[in-house]
Write a protein that binds this DNA or RNA. Sequence first.
DNA 1: ATGAACTATGTAAAGGTTTACAGTGACCGA
DNA 2: TCGGTCACTGTAAACCTTTACATAGTTCAT
Lengths: 340, 340
Amino acid sequence: MLQQKLATIEDVAAMAGVSIATVSRAINEPTKVADATRRKVTDAIARTGYTTNAMARSLRMRRSNMILILAPDVGDPNFSNILVGLETEASKRGYGLLIGNTQNDPSRETDYLRFISSNQADGLILFTGHLPFGLGQSLTDARLPPMVAVNEPVLGQDIPFVGVDNFEGARIAAEHLISQGHRRIAFVGRAPNREINRLREDGYRAALGGAGIGIDPRLIIDGDGTTESGRAAAELMFVRDALPTAFLCVNDATAMGVIIALNARRYDLPRQFSVMGFDDISFASFITPSLTTMKQPRHRMGEAAMELLLTLLAGEKPKSREVLLRAELILRNSVTRPPG
Amino acid sequence: MLQQKLATIEDVAAMAGVSIATVSRAINEPTKVADATRRKVTDAIARTGYTTNAMARSLRMRRSNMILILAPDVGDPNFSNILVGLETEASKRGYGLLIGNTQNDPSRETDYLRFISSNQADGLILFTGHLPFGLGQSLTDARLPPMVAVNEPVLGQDIPFVGVDNFEGARIAAEHLISQGHRRIAFVGRAPNREINRLREDGYRAALGGAGIGIDPRLIIDGDGTTESGRAAAELMFVRDALPTAFLCVNDATAMGVIIALNARRYDLPRQFSVMGFDDISFASFITPSLTTMKQPRHRMGEAAMELLLTLLAGEKPKSREVLLRAELILRNSVTRPPG
DNA sequence: ATGAACTATGTAAAGGTTTACAGTGACCGA
DNA sequence: TCGGTCACTGTAAACCTTTACATAGTTCAT
């Protein structure tokens, strides 16, 4: 498996009968070399099968054209679809993607920073909602590497951010339920220390406030966004005996838990209860009843985040350091008018 | 955003009062330097905040400690979970992962090969089931880069492979249905030119043959593995009026389509029809009825593939160039004894 | 006392680019 | 004729490591 020796710029130069500087220019600034010379070089490149050694180039230029992606779980479809958008934009601009799966493990976060400090990556995309451990305190004063948070903002730090407008999205969702005639609307998935959950809850409150509906604290249930938490939340409502006519859930996974619990209790959905989610995960359309939800423009989110990062990397001033995309209302079968 | 100049090995050497060679050795072969010297070096490293420049190192050593992953769609949960396994093993061994999302676009495949030819990646993991366009013919004679196919083998080429034993898995699935008393078992998702589909169909045939059940060609339906194809296949069975008592589907997405079609026709599942899938995708447990299926050990698959690749990369002889992992039968509610 | 064997360190080359600077003609206007 | 401008090309330094080879000092058997 020994590397056979590859052609270098010197081989090309020798074959074309020019200096290596000219070869380099022919490749990188074609207008600066005479037509005849350029042809000789192009020809020699084809004959030798030369490709620029990226390591040498990166060493000299002090940049790698690589972007490090730090995500807690690449397997999560919520992330992986954004990843596709990131990749689309990056590869269009000649950048490569390095993935770091941290599993929320601080030591793994620190570990992956070596790619930044060793010049193996020029910038950083952060899915984690917090600065990687090791950047947190030690570099508050020093220079942070160019980075953009996506999906979840970094709290208490002025880090450029691309995400969905969670407040607005949740408000639209709640307003949709209200427009169907619901007035007793539960919010499932309260978690004040999670930024996303907090914003969605705020949107819910804003919609109810705007419609002159009072907030019943018994209808706001804690949850961590898992299917299991949705199931538990629904059960809790029955125990408390304070039932809503509709459930607005912090995300689709939670909504699935609610639906499973209601189905298990043999309720007829959506006739007896309406349920809404948020995210539009791939199987939202396949459960029964199919889930009315807010769709996140994940692909576009990835593209926008990469675009922002590359703008920063180029040293240009971005139009805005915060990009909020609108979630889209997807009408399916889990919402209807309340009974009675 | 200008890079502030980072400490180099020379700065460390100067501070420690030794030569750069000694610093390098203190880092890479600690046993070869005297204790006292090593301490001085470690100290200087800490004081300067030195980290070795990966580009310079890669240039000199002619390897990057990077692996290129070529996948048609990183957003597909089927892939992304394997990706997590790949990452686990790679990062454990000090390797980084470069992701290439090809969307089955030959030009993107070719494009990503530049990472290999420019020394930016040492090896290749192939999800695509075929050699990247550009390696196909031109390098049949020349040397192929070290690579391992995962999930789907590369046909007609002797490429090391790690995947699930599809034949055996499908056989186990079919035998489970037979053990429940089914004898009219449909296979949904025939696609002779897709290796995976072909193997699963073969496993199905083997199980039926082993139980002395004749193959009814009307019960074998084409399908491309999508939910929609499953739905269409079920409808087709009703048109043909050749109904099975159980559907063995080539994958879970197909099985979901079948279930949706049967639910829509108001059948009572699993009483009237049993349905099995293959894969155990994340929402297999959430549809109604929850899906009995064969679970793919995706995480382990990723780990095994990376382990094999790194073995090859180290120039060692692997135990085997083909690793087939067993799929596990997951019992849920979509299978029961046939009616009557 | 001598040379061998070993340990610890240093010197310098090599890895393959990009680019500042210098150089060479050709052309042109005065 | 001369100086200046322009278009093109070459020379050599710099980017930061790793490592073959050389050197110096120590230990030890003879």
